[in-house]
């Protein structure tokens, strides 16, 4: 009984633990974001270069909602995973008009792409 539920939990967690996040697939999924974002410059949404390890709402010169600016979130694989699943629930009052990505693998791949691009000199010219 105990063993069965343990196995069930491991199965349930496995998509999150998957080390098989595919950043090339993530690059294509990033097409869902490029209506508003680019890696290296601000558009309707702020730039994503240097995102990992940055405080939320901290790109200089970009006008954020007060919810985003005043949040104490630090962007990491984990915080991005929760944010992107349901941005409104995670940070009420933020003004990113995006319902979220429900599929765990899609989120993992997309975040793997953001991590790979984060300080890649080809995609992110200046840090």
């Amino acid at each position: 009984m105990f063993r069965a539920s343990l196995i069930a939990i491991i199965f349930w967690l496995s998509p999150l633990m998957a080390s098989s996040a595919d950043s090339d697939r993530g690059a294509r999924l990033y097409g869902r974001c490029t209506g508003c974002h680019s890696l290296d410059y601000d558009r309707t949404g702020p730039r994503h270069c240097g995102l990992i390890g940055r405080k939320a709402g901290a790109v200089p010169g970009f006008v954020y909602s007060s919810a985003m600016k005043n949040s104490s979130i630090l962007w990491s694989v984990q915080t991005l995973d929760v944010f992107l699943q349901n941005p409104r629930a995670f940070m009420p009052g933020n003004r990113m008009p995006y319902a979220g990505i429900k599929n765990n693998q899609d989120r993992a791949d997309l975040i793997a792409f953001l991590v790979a691009a984060n300080d890649d000199p080809k995609q992110c010219a200046q840090p």
């Binding site: 097409g31 869902r32 974001c33 490029t34 209506g35 508003c36 409104r88 008009p97 995006y98 319902a99 979220g100």
Partner: peptide
């Protein structure tokens, strides 16, 4: 085309909200 595709995805993400 890339801008149009981006815009479609953006509206798609916004509709439920």
């Amino acid at each position: 085309a890339s801008l149009e595709k981006g815009a479609v995805s953006a509206y798609l993400g916004a509709v439920p909200l």
